[in-house]
Amino acid sequence: MSVTGKTAEAASTGAREYLTFRLGQEEYGIDILKVQEIRGYEPPTRIANAPDFIKGVVNLRGTIVPIVDMRLKFNCAQAEYNSFTVVIILNLRSRVVGIVVDSVSDVMELTPDSVRAAPDIESAIDNGCIMGLGSVGERMLILLDIEKLMSSVDMGLVTADE
């Protein structure tokens, strides 16, 4: 099936496609339409007084892109940089932001009936930034509203009125 045929089919069923990635043992999903590209990790230029989870900035074809280490943001036990570590470049409103993750898994299509509401529990992630939990077979995905997460006040990356 062609890509356009698959996308049209997904639109007719209300299904959405998510790029899945790993942080430690957890698997997350973000809306594929927010993803600009996926790159290998390269150490960014550090910025003075930036929070620990903002690793710095990189120059991406003339655009200065802040790089957020999601492992540090979500208080993962460790943030180890290896050959699987990647940066997902996101296009959020008028801002380009990179997020560092352990690895990218694949693109999954989820129908509305395979997504459940997230339980209301205390976590490192603001519950308003979790769209729900998606399940496909034995896999459980934490679906993030990445735009809302990146525009939260503590991130300081995207202003609400942009």
Rank of each mutant, 00 (worst) to 15 (best):
N49T: 07
P51A: 06
K73V: 06
A11R: 14
N59W: 01
Y41A: 09
V68H: 06
L23V: 11
A8K: 14
T13W: 04
N49A: 10
P66I: 10
Y41I: 08
L60C: 05
A15H: 09
A10E: 09
A10G: 02
V68M: 04
V35M: 10
G62R: 15
K6G: 02
A8Q: 11
N49W: 00
L72G: 06
A11H: 06
I47E: 01
N49I: 03
N75Q: 15
N49P: 00
S2N: 13
I67M: 07
Y28C: 07
I30H: 02
E9I: 06
E27F: 00
I47F: 00
N59F: 05
G24Q: 08
E26N: 12
L60K: 06
R16G: 09
L23M: 13
A10S: 11
A10W: 04
F53E: 01
L72R: 15
V57P: 04
S2W: 04
D52I: 02
R46D: 00
E27K: 14
L23F: 01
E17V: 06
G24I: 06
K6D: 08
G24N: 10
P43T: 07
T45R: 14
G5L: 13
E9V: 08
V65K: 08
E9Y: 12
E37Q: 15
A48G: 00
P44N: 06
G24L: 12
F21W: 03
E27C: 12
E26I: 03
V65T: 15
G14L: 13
I38A: 06
P66H: 13
D52H: 03
N75D: 14
I67Q: 02
I64S: 14
G40F: 11
F53Y: 13
G40D: 11
D52F: 01
F21P: 05
I32S: 11
E27T: 14
I30D: 00
Y41V: 10
F21A: 05
R61A: 13
P43Y: 02
E37A: 15
T13Y: 07
A48L: 12
P44V: 07
G5I: 12
I67P: 05
